[in-house]
């Protein structure tokens, strides 16, 4: 039982990271109908920005704000440089452009900052607390807390605010949204900014656990992408549930079946969903509307 509790905590912690990145995938997919394969690199860039800001002598909270502002700016540049020029093309050139952007971001950071993995201290001085038989890593606690807050925020933002409803309308039907006076390009811009900030947030939160390296984004993004499909592509709640499920499944699979095949469990679940429930846990909203 002690073992299961420890695994559950860790699984939820790592799953929350997948969920945050998956959320970025979903938001951009809903707004533009394309998958942004540079979403993982957003996490990596934000973690490096954080390291640079901390090394520059900024207090941790200020470095955090600077890093997130940097990500917002990256979201703008990404929208204008990668999506906007191709917005009238089919989804394929846009997807290829996001893959290209992902490679560009990774290699740009490599060229600027070098290949050395970096250590980023966590928010708290204490590494964790022992709660009975379970050790609670303070960084994982923070990640879980932030994920819960974001779930609540997303619900409020998309369901209760005018801007959120405009974003939803844009994602559901751009032409009708445009006829209703909504600036579609502005809404898409906001989506890219929010997704970049979300991806960045995931990167900054996970950096003290996984270290800051060029590869950190792609490793997380692969799992987050799987989580998105499991949850139901296009569904915000699905991304959260998919991410958390994936984290828990792979952690328990590693502990009780096989450690070397840990990644295999995640993708086994993905394949099972693609065969038996391709629309994911929460289905696909576009299909429901049709």
């Amino acid at each position: 039982m002690d073992l299961a509790l420890q695994l559950l905590f860790t699984g939820i912690g790592i799953g929350a990271v997948y969920a945050l990145v998956a959320l970025g995938f979903v938001l951009i997919f809903r707004a533009t109908n394309v998958v942004n394969f540079a979403q993982g690199e957003f996490s990596m860039v934000a973690a490096y920005l954080m390291v640079v800001a901390v090394e520059a002598g900024l207090p941790y909270w200020a470095a955090f704000i600077v890093a997130l502002l940097g990500m917002a700016l990256l979201g703008v540049v990404f929208n204008l440089g990668v999506y906007y020029p191709l917005r009238h093309r089919t989804y394929l050139p846009v997807i290829i452009a996001t893959i290209g952007a992902s490679i560009l971001l990774a290699n740009s950071v490599l060229a600027i900052y070098g290949p050395q993995p970096q250590v980023l201290q966590g928010w708290f001085d204490t590494p964790g607390i022992q709660l009975g038989p379970v050790y609670l890593d303070s960084q994982y606690l923070l990640i879980i807390g932030v994920t819960i807050c974001l779930v609540i925020f997303n619900f409020w933002f998309f369901e209760k605010t005018l801007l959120g409803k405009k974003l939803q309308a844009t994602s559901q039907d751009k032409e009708i949204a445009s006829l209703l006076g909504i600036s579609v390009s502005t809404m898409i811009m906001i989506t890219f900014i929010y997704s970049a900030v979300l991806g960045g947030l995931a990167g900054i939160l996970v950096a003290p656990v996984l270290f800051v390296s060029i590869q950190m984004g792609s490793t997380i993004a692969l799992k987050a992408f799987a989580a998105t499909i499991i949850g139901g592509f296009g569904d915000v709640a699905g991304a959260i549930i998919g991410g958390l499920s994936l984290g828990v499944i792979e952690t328990f699979g590693a502990a009780y079946i096989s450690v070397p095949y840990k990644d295999g469990f995640a993708f086994l679940v993905l394949v099972a969903f693609l065969i038996f429930r391709p629309q994911g846990i929460f289905g696909e909203r576009v299909a429901e509307k049709a």
Binding site: Q6, I14, V209, T219, I220, T251, V259, P260, K262
Partner: peptide, 16 residues
Amino acid sequence: QGYANQSQDFTPVVLA
């Protein structure tokens, strides 16, 4: 105990 490279979490290994 074997493990796959680029693992993000070693909790199951440590517990084993």
